[in-house]
């Protein structure tokens, strides 16, 4: 296929995934912020961590004086100055979709196009904070619909594989950032969560990746920080974990190399990163420092993105 088309597909999927992730981040901030202070703790600023998780704090500070719910929602959901705002993501996603109409199934195109039309009806100036969940739900449903139509309607060929690569690179990045922002609350080893601040912080982390219930099914016990990290980093059965993302990345890169008859740097990098995740234990990771591990992971992940671009999309 055309390199430009593969590039558009890859980024289309990344932007849809990014919009969903930002919606999840805002959703968690909204829930945490609406808790009574006695539950939530006085010293956490959920809206600020939302900005950090979305790696948007710097851009935000350049435009606003104060971290208020309204300002954060404006910047992360609507702002034209933020190319990764939810509306910015859908603008770019739709532009990419328009340029590869032929490589998309009509179901995929319709999911993007109708979301783009619907979301434009929400305006920052008129959105009440209480309306936020409705807006965020629409974003999450769109992402589900896009993903679902890709899974159910696309031919299993390179177009499909490149679009999946975009999803998993973006998703791995997001899960790592969600963990990294909260790593300090994950530190106390083996301590059981007693309620109050920590419980909600950890529950929030899990909820932001739709894993609160899954946690119970996997571990059958109360929330423990190391297990939260274990679930989101090493457990392949957890669909948003780093290990699951890398299983998928290396599988789809292999699909491509098998079809094309040659493999390269991207395949080697993905396979190595996947192996590093399958051969680790969570104790090992904590001993070497969770924060350092996550930082390295985020860097490696974006390097893989560059390798994919150089090998196929340039």
């Amino acid at each position: 296929m055309l390199s430009r088309d593969a590039d558009s597909l890859y980024w289309l999927s990344r932007y849809v995934e990014r919009a969903e992730n930002t919606a999840r981040i805002l959703d968690v901030a909204y829930r945490m912020a609406s808790m009574p202070i006695s539950y939530n703790g006085v010293d956490t600023n959920e809206w600020e961590s939302a900005l950090i998780t979305a790696s948007a704090l710097q851009g935000f500070r350049a435009l606003y004086d104060e971290v208020t719910p309204e300002n954060v929602i404006d910047y992360l959901a609507f702002s034209e100055a933020n190319p990764s705002s939810i509306q910015g993501c859908f603008d770019t996603a739709r532009q990419n979709a328009r340029s590869v109409r032929g490589a998309l199934t009509s179901e995929m195109w319709e999911s993007i196009n109708s979301a783009w039309l619907d979301l434009r009806r929400f305006k920052s100036q008129t959105l009440q904070v209480e309306d936020l969940p409705r807006f965020l739900n629409l974003v999450k449903e769109t992402s589900l619909r896009y993903d679902g139509s890709a899974l159910r309607t696309m031919l299993r060929n390179d177009a499909y594989w490149f679009s999946r690569l975009g999803v998993y690179i973006e998703r791995a990045d997001n899960t790592a950032r969600v963990l990294d922002v909260k790593y300090h609350v994950l530190l106390p080893k083996d301590s059981e969560v007693g309620g109050g601040i920590d419980y909600y912080q950890w529950a929030a982390i899990l909820r932001s990746v739709s894993a609160l219930v899954s946690y119970q099914w996997v571990y059958h016990q109360n929330l423990r920080p190391w297990l939260v990290a274990d679930l989101l980093i090493l457990r392949e059965e957890m669909p948003r974990s780093l290990a699951a993302c890398y299983a998928a990345l290396s599988r789809h890169l292999d699909d491509i190399s098998e079809r094309y008859g040659t493999s390269g740097n991207a395949q080697r990098m993905a396979r190595a990163a996947h192996a590093r995740l399958t051969n680790r234990t969570i104790e090992d990771i904590f001993q070497h420092g969770l924060h350092e591990f996550l930082e390295d992971f985020i860097t490696e992940n974006s390097r893989l993105g560059v390798a994919i671009t150089n090998q196929y999309l340039g």
């Binding site: 055309l2 390199s3 390179d158 094309y260």
Partner: peptide, 22 residues
């Protein structure tokens, strides 16, 4: 068939090629 823009095509030795993932 592929939908190409000018930048997807190039000419070498009077033959036209498109840039693909392969």
């Amino acid at each position: 068939v592929e939908l190409v823009e000018g930048r997807d095509l190039f000419v070498r030795d009077e033959v036209v090629y498109m840039r693909t993932t392969q």
